[in-house]
């Protein structure tokens, strides 16, 4: 049976007369040998993704231990709101903004970073002194001191600058970088985009796109509690509300709907009204922090 697999002919050059002369078995072999398995990503990309998952796991573990540690401390000393976590184990620093919190932090090189709710920045102190590289999960605003290249690595790609102010939004599969001053270079899977003041780079279904004349101040407005969204998936909007107000939101029937507008993080019901009214949605708050969202009945 195994010998049969040698009797195949190159489909690339086969003539009609030759093809007609093949037995069914030979035709089958000829085709099967010419088949390739389709791929979405290369092996190198797959390895890269796997490595970042592995790295992510290793970062996560010490954090969990730390939480256990702090809960012990808290029970004795009643240490309440702790927003910034300095993490000295293996000299790595994590700046974590929990739900409903914003954290401002000055990096060792004097650059300032504001971390939005439900976001995390991590870097190695010794490494950062040599190369200004840090990792971001979520959203943060950077005001970078002039000097060596400053690199923000996200799940989707990296953002590179010299000295500038810019905002990075990296959640789910979305990456959105807005430049307020200076120049920013964004790299995703080998695609490059350089953006300047008033421009943004956005990852749209795998492709990096540049948009000019954007309201950059609004995109970084979250620092003062003002949120601005342009054509964002409704689901992402409610995820943002979850993070800002530390609530749990369950939604139904919001797929493929988009929202453009503003809200502030001062008042939950006001914010819900702002989004739900124009989008014709109903909301229901139970137990103070559970919210259900569904389309209004006609």
């Amino acid at each position: 049976m195994e010998t049969e697999k040698n009797r195949h002919i190159d489909l690339q050059v086969i003539s009609k007369a030759h093809f007609d002369n093949l037995t069914t078995g030979e035709k089958i072999e000829t085709f099967v040998q010419a088949y390739r398995v389709p791929k979405n990503r290369s092996k190198a990309e797959a390895l890269h993704i796997l490595q970042s998952k592995i790295e992510h796991q290793q970062v996560e573990k010490p954090v969990r231990n730390l939480r256990v540690y702090w809960s012990a401390v808290a029970s004795i000393a009643l240490v309440a709101l702790l927003t910034t976590v300095y993490f000295f184990h293996s000299k790595s620093v994590q700046i974590v903004a929990g739900m409903g919190q914003h954290v401002e932090y000055t990096l060792p090189d004097g650059s300032d970073v504001a971390v939005n709710a439900g976001s995390k920045i991590s870097f190695s102190e010794s490494e950062f002194a040599k190369n200004r590289i840090l990792k971001l999960e979520g959203e943060a605003f950077f005001s970078v001191q002039k000097g060596n290249p400053f690199v923000v690595e996200t799940k989707q790609g990296k953002v590179e600058v010299l000295g500038t102010t810019f905002n990075v939004y990296s959640r789910n599969n979305e990456l959105n970088v807005a430049c307020l001053t200076g120049k920013v270079k964004v790299t995703v899977n080998g695609q490059n985009v350089i953006i300047e003041e008033g421009e943004k780079a956005e990852l749209i279904s795998g492709t990096l796109k540049k948009t000019t004349n954007i309201l950059t101040e609004k995109m970084a407005g979250w620092r003062s509690g003002e949120f601005h969204f342009e054509n964002m998936p409704l689901i992402s909007i409610f995820e943002e509300i979850e993070r800002q107000f530390n609530v749990r939101i369950t939604t139904t029937g919001l797929e493929n709907r988009y929202f453009t507008g503003d809200f502030s993080n001062k008042n939950l019901t006001e914010t819900l009204e702002t989004v739900c009214l124009p989008m014709k949605l109903d909301y229901e708050i139970t137990n103070g922090n559970q919210i259900g969202i569904k389309p209004k009945k006609e």
Partner: peptide, 29 residues
Amino acid sequence: LKLQLTIVEDRTFETPEFEMEIKEFDQKL
């Protein structure tokens, strides 16, 4: 199943009928 048949798009076939025959065999298989 959608395997890729690795004959390049620009292969010239003797007749359109033969090209059709090849493509049909692929789909059936």
